[in-house]
Write a protein that binds this DNA or RNA. Structure first.
Lengths: 304, 304
DNA sequence: AACATTGATACCCATCTTGTATCAATTGAT
DNA sequence: ATCAATTGATACAAGATGGGTATCAATGTT
């Protein structure tokens, strides 16, 4: 097979139609250029140039081959540049998984941030529950996860990206809906709508722990998987719920959210998790960008 | 710049993800493959493979580069094949010029012949007068001409591709329209519609020569450039005309064509002309095909 | 613990590539 | 007509490159 160097020589020669001038442009002397062209013609098995001792012109085959060669060379430098970009993390593609609720709280600003700083990185977003994300992370099917702690996997690093207060959710028709704050004691004797232990272990453990610590016992517990579904039940008058602050963004009209008194010091965390070692530099770029962004925001919050 | 050999090595390695197996597939030993990959990574300035002493896997940059490399290699073999095809004359593009009338008589069968035998040759057809074709041929703007003789140009070879009888054209309302044959004497005292000396020197010389030899003198001569326009005038009753047999294909309803008596031995020739030396093998293929076709047809005619 | 397999390295040799010097052929100027 | 200049091709020596064999260190496997 011919060489890219030969193609480069031929393309230049096809433009100049003069061996010496072409050789000068190629920063080489004329004899090796002649030899390259001869080798190329021998390789293809056809005359690419019509030389008649004084002038050089392209044959039909040569004209076609010059165009094709130029295209190959263009693609070569393109491959070079693109690969360097991907290696540097300025381009590429990453897959980010996220919990349903974080699509209201954190994902929109993340997308905006990436679009602004890394427009050449293609994003694939996949909504998954925290257990699903842990499995996907362990098998390296996703680059970055946005999930609920804890992340007990080896070779994974995590950063907290969001910390929220808890809110009490009550039906709009409920007598407590008129209060500005709702004490956790008020849940006693009411139906608690909350997260199931398997699909939402983090919230489940947090909510049940909260009630146990406060010695409050709901009359019944209704398990539902997603926050927006829980709030839908609350709006329908099924019962009360404890949800993170970002649930405001997906609360239906029939559900009222109020600050929860008696749960101070308990927060809902959203963490970003990713493999410590990755073969995808775009992932590293995104992680660095997010952490820098969070640090800047933390400093801003501290200063104010 | 990297080498196509390196790309070939890398693509194979990216498929196998094992140096020894890849080397075997590439018909080389493992050490030079390792060196090629190292050289490639050094050239690009990025790690394409993540090797951890026991397993090899592609980095994000490597995966992208493997796809791009495959594309480059595909295009290289494509360029190779296509150029060989063009050089052999099995593919390519040719420009054929032709006189208006030959588009009825000869060009359709020519196109059909080429489509059948050389489907990969792209045709460009340009209708031109004979003098225009001679100029285009001299400046090598066309590969093959279909025109009227003589072709007095150096380094051009010609072949007669069509020889036709002459017909007399009279208005359908004319008294001669009822005859089965029309003698050239009958033109005497009538208006002759015929070709002008500059744009149609061949027909002009032929027709005027014919009348001079027969000693027949029309009452007036009306010059018009194209055969179909001449027949249009005849149909409109302007006068009579002498046209080649193939004019039947473009005769309007108001014009009647009859064998011309008294012009035996005078024929209309259509010749194919092309440069003796061409850089376009497709042109040579077409010429050879046409001449073989004509020879076959001549033998057939002789036999019958 | 012995063994097999992995990719990387050292070294040798054949081949290829390059540059200098030169040639034969052709053109243009005088 | 003749001479100088320019064209692409060729010869040859020096250096660079590519491939092969033998081998190594590291890591799983039995």
């Amino acid at each position: 097979m011919f060489t890219l160097v030969q193609l480069r020589c031929f393309v230049t020669l096809a433009e100049e139609l003069n061996f010496r001038r072409a050789a000068r442009r190629l920063n080489m002397s004329q004899p090796p250029l002649s030899r390259h062209i001869q080798a190329l013609e021998h390789e293809i098995g056809a005359a690419l140039l019509a030389r008649n001792r004084r002038s050089v012109q392209l044959t039909a085959a040569g004209a076609s081959f010059a165009r094709l060669s130029q295209r190959i060379l263009d693609q070569a430098v393109d491959a070079y540049r693109q690969t360097r970009q991907i290696a540097s993390g300025d381009a590429g593609e990453i897959t980010i998984s996220f919990t349903a609720l974080s699509s209201y709280a954190f994902v929109p600003s993340l997308i905006a941030l990436l679009r602004k700083h890394y427009p050449a990185i293609a994003l694939t977003l996949r909504e998954m529950t925290t257990p699903q994300q842990l499995a996907a992370l362990a098998s390296r099917q996703v680059d970055i996860c946005l999930l609920r702690p804890p992340v007990a996997l080896p070779n994974i690093r995590t950063t907290r990206v969001l910390r929220e207060r808890l809110l009490a959710a009550v039906p709009a028709k409920h007598r407590l809906a008129k209060r500005r704050h709702i004490n956790i004691d008020e849940f006693g004797g009411n139906v608690l709508v909350t997260y199931p232990p398997v699909e939402g272990p983090y919230f489940h453990g947090m909510v049940t722990g909260l009630f146990q610590a406060a010695g409050v016992y709901p009359s019944a517990i209704q398990y539902i998987t997603q926050t927006h579904a829980i709030l839908g039940c609350v709006a329908a008058g099924v019962g009360m719920a404890v949800v993170p602050e970002s649930a405001k963004a997906c609360a239906p009209a029939g559900a009222v959210l109020r600050p929860l008194v008696g749960a101070e010091g308990v927060h809902v965390d959203l963490v970003m998790a990713s493999p410590i070692e990755t073969t995808n530099p775009a992932s590293a770029s995104v992680l660095a960008l997010v952490e820098k962004h969070l640090a800047g925001r933390a400093r801003g919050a501290q200063a104010s």
